[in-house]
Design a protein around this nucleic acid. Structure first.
Length: 199
DNA sequence: TCTTCGATTGTCT
DNA sequence: GACAATCGAAGAA
């Protein structure tokens, strides 16, 4: 049986957590029903020194959740229309989070289909703003504890992804950050996920 | 108060 | 491949 990831999972260096989040299941309860997908792409954002991280400007009202306890959702609005989902990591008071960039839909497909009408299934959750749209994740999810089921947003164990199937690359959309931040291999993707079998 | 711009996406050429 | 959409956060004035 799949288990909810505990706070201790997130209380580690954010780059490690980003790697280990691959193959986990993101679960959202919508109208009492499970809607879920396997995480296949993540990015790590690490502290105030990381010039790509929102915390580079220090603590603000927007990014304050990142400074809080590991295992919370940091959900923010950008480009005037998109919501992004992150998981807060590391020790209390240290701003770090993992951006969830894509999912493979697994449960509640008919609900996702309704929310992503007219879009082909391969693109339902293949982007950070697409998956929040598909799973109905918006402002009200900011700060939620994702280590308990009662908030309707949590992560579960699912598959273990071996290193040979994990690819790391520079992060997307952060050209403004400058070196070394634009080049750090802090984006993780599952390579060729058709090869993976359930364990 | 005013200006700039973004951890993106969908549409149009 | 290029670009408009769209609005709140952050910083300057």
């Amino acid at each position: 049986m799949d288990q909810i990831l505990p706070a201790s999972f997130y209380e580690r260096p954010v780059v490690e957590v980003a790697r280990d989040l691959l193959g986990k299941k993101l679960v959202r309860i919508i109208d009492g029903r499970r809607v879920a997908g396997m995480i296949c792409e993540t990015e790590a954002y690490d502290g105030e020194t990381d010039q790509a991280c929102h915390a580079r400007v220090g603590r603000t009202n927007r990014n304050s959740v990142m400074y809080g306890k590991a295992g919370q959702a940091y959900v923010y609005f950008t480009y005037g229309m998109h919501w992004m989902l992150n998981c807060v990591c590391g020790p209390l008071g240290y701003p770090a989070a993992v951006l969830i960039r894509s999912l493979i839909p697994l449960e509640g497909l008919e609900i996702i289909a309704g929310r992503r009408e007219g879009i082909r299934q391969a693109d339902w959750c293949s982007g950070p703003a697409r998956l929040t749209r598909a799973l109905s994740i918006e402002r009200q999810c900011n700060g939620l504890d994702v280590t308990v089921a009662q908030n309707g947003l949590f992560l579960e164990t699912y598959m273990n992804i071996p290193d040979r199937l994990v690819k790391s690359t520079p992060r997307i959309g952060i050209q403004y950050a400058g070196e070394p931040w634009v080049s750090l291999p802090w984006r993780f993707v599952i390579q060729d996920h058709s090869q993976i079998s359930t364990s």
